[in-house]
């Protein structure tokens, strides 16, 4: 991924510096929350009851208290509001009852370090691999059209409004099925 980005986009002129990074999972080693544009890997777990033996290992593995074990059957009780899509349950399950439903990237924008650090904002979840180059291209396009010289994109978003950016990104971010978390919230 990073290599592709380097080949396609290195040297692209922008109003000020523009840092991107890719993290494999929510441990977020490459600190996407501090990046102008960050991509962090996520996986949505799905449970197949037929394969489950009620061993409770998934509840042990989950560090987010998302999975509880039923007192009688041992089978998982899943709270979609707490899931951070790290995939620990999928890796721990010995019978493949927990499987990956889909992979993607959480996209974060507007982070920076320096004298006035800013935390990036989440703008998209489960962006598929093939949409990453367009996400970068359209973001840089918007930044070049709206950013002031020496202004990092985080500050541009504050000044111009995140909604304007999101509208511009509709062709790339639009149409992606929502995460379980958002679907649960909507009831």
């Amino acid at each position: 991924m990073a290599e592709m980005v380097d080949q396609k986009f290195f040297g692209t002129p922008t109003p000020h510096k523009f840092k991107t990074s890719f993290s494999g999972c929510p441990i977020d080693c490459s600190r996407t929350k501090e990046m102008d544009l960050g991509f962090q890997g996520v996986v949505e777990p799905v449970w197949a009851e037929e394969e489950c033996t009620g061993c409770t290992i998934c509840a042990e593995a989950c560090k987010e208290d998302t999975i509880e074990s039923d007192a009688d059957t041992g089978k998982p009780i899943f709270d979609p509001m707490k899931c951070i899509y790290c995939g620990d349950c999928i890796r721990a399950c010995p019978t493949e009852a927990w499987k990956p439903a889909r992979y993607g990237h959480t996209v974060r924008i507007g982070g920076k370090h320096g004298r006035h650090p800013m935390e990036a904002v989440e703008v998209c979840n489960f962006l598929p691999d093939e949409k990453v180059p367009d996400a970068i291209r359209l973001t840089v396009e918007w930044y070049n059209a709206n950013g002031k010289r020496y202004e990092r994109i985080g500050n541009t978003l504050k000044r111009v409004g995140l909604d304007k950016y999101l509208k511009h990104m509709e062709p790339v971010f639009g149409g992606i099925p929502k995460r379980m978390t958002e679907r649960a919230y909507e009831g």
Binding site: T53, C55, T56, I57, E60, A61, G74, D88, R91, A92, C93, P94, T95
Partner: peptide, 25 residues
Amino acid sequence: DSGDPIQNVPKSIKEEGHKIIEVKK
């Protein structure tokens, strides 16, 4: 033990071709 051992060993043993028939905490 709880923690890393229980999260990693069963899956690896299954991948070796064996079957986990019971788990009791």
